[in-house]
């Protein structure tokens, strides 16, 4: 159970949010010339890490806006909340914030 800090609405109960899965997955630039293995990798294969996971969340019962979040999948501690379009969160580069940490 987590308390997530929405970039627009502030700290809210996890129940208000919906996880949209792994973030920063790039659609192949030219689908018509992409082979089956590369397409399967894009559609189905996931990093699924035991550790830092960068994922999409939607404040579905609030402002309904999407954002990125980095979370430790073992402790459920939230490491960062950042905007769509920003580069992937790097746990080695940024100090962990206490804001929005797992309750």
């Amino acid at each position: 159970m987590m308390q997530i800090t929405c970039p627009w609405c502030g700290p809210r109960d996890q129940r208000e949010f919906r996880c949209g899965g792994e973030a920063h997955i790039k659609r192949p630039a030219d689908p018509a010339s992409t082979d089956e293995a590369a397409w399967a990798d894009y559609v189905f294969m996931r990093t699924n890490p035991k550790g830092t996971h960068r994922e999409l969340w939607n404040h579905v019962h609030g402002c309904r806006r999407w954002f990125n979040m980095a979370r430790d999948t073992v402790s459920d501690r939230i490491l960062a909340v950042y905007a769509i379009g920003e580069p992937p969160f790097d746990p080695d580069a940024a100090p962990a914030t206490s804001e929005g940490a797992a309750q």
């Binding site: 996890q14 129940r15 699924n48």
Partner: peptide
Amino acid sequence: DLYVSYAQRGGFD
């Protein structure tokens, strides 16, 4: 629980 997690407890919701 509808997000990736390896925590063997899950959310109260």
